[in-house]
Amino acid sequence: MSQANHSIPLGDKLWRWLVISLPYWWLAIFFLAPFAIVFKISFADPVVAQPPFSNFFDFSPGAESWLLATLDNYRFITEDNLYWISYFKSLKIATISTVLCLLLGYPMAYGIAKCQPGTRNILLMLVILPFWTSFLLRVYAWIVMLGKTGAINSLLLKMGLITTPIEMLYTDGAVYLGIVYTYIPFMVLPLYSVLEKMDTNLQDAAADLGARRWQVFFNIILPLSMPGVIAGSMLVFIPALGEFVIPSLLGGIDSLMIGRTLYDEFFINRDWPLASAVATVLLFIIVVPIMLLQSSQKERS
């Protein structure tokens, strides 16, 4: 369907126009335009007003210049340690969490793929199920588990293994735990779909040629499942990088992930221009892994 014919009736042209323009303009107005505004405000000065940022243009007579742009916000980000630490901590936590997800998710995906088809579907369902239930409440479940008076501490106390509760909640460890817990389905699913399609004859052939079990794994299975590893890692890494809820619920005051810093800058300090600059920088950091993901996908096809 769909050519621009000369004698296509007006109604049919209108339909075509509607199908394309409606979603297009929606996204242009509510997704693209906002970024332009963020970008613009990141060059403004914070002021105590409603809204709390200076105008971009000043056409009033006697103004020094009609354009009021400043690089102060970006300068501030590079000078203040807080932001450096936040960015690096985000990268660190996202990277380590991704590796942890991979270490747990790979054997899980492998195990599910090795099961009988009936069992496989049930196990797969069990992996997906938490994804459909509330994310916030699942993070909250860890507060119940890890708190000073939480499930784990009370159990250990009752068993007499410890005398004073262990400090588990509000630590970086809890943040790792929360991220791995939340994003593990994103790692298992792409790995499973790659492993499930893999031809068992390859492994049998390698074993037949004298490879040991671990050699079969490292020489055959792992290289062939790389697309799944890459896809899964990106699906964990990218959202983990900008994560806000987990560090603010499970992390300590020093769990300065960039999402949380941005949120605080915006809501607590009410410095909108600075928050916009932080967002702009984060956006550029996010673009890198996405480009990597896209090029790896292109290679595959």
Binding site: M1, Q3, N5, H6, S7, D12
Partner: peptide, 9 residues
Amino acid sequence: DISDLPAYD
């Protein structure tokens, strides 16, 4: 001449 007619016509 049907060159310019859409498929449904």
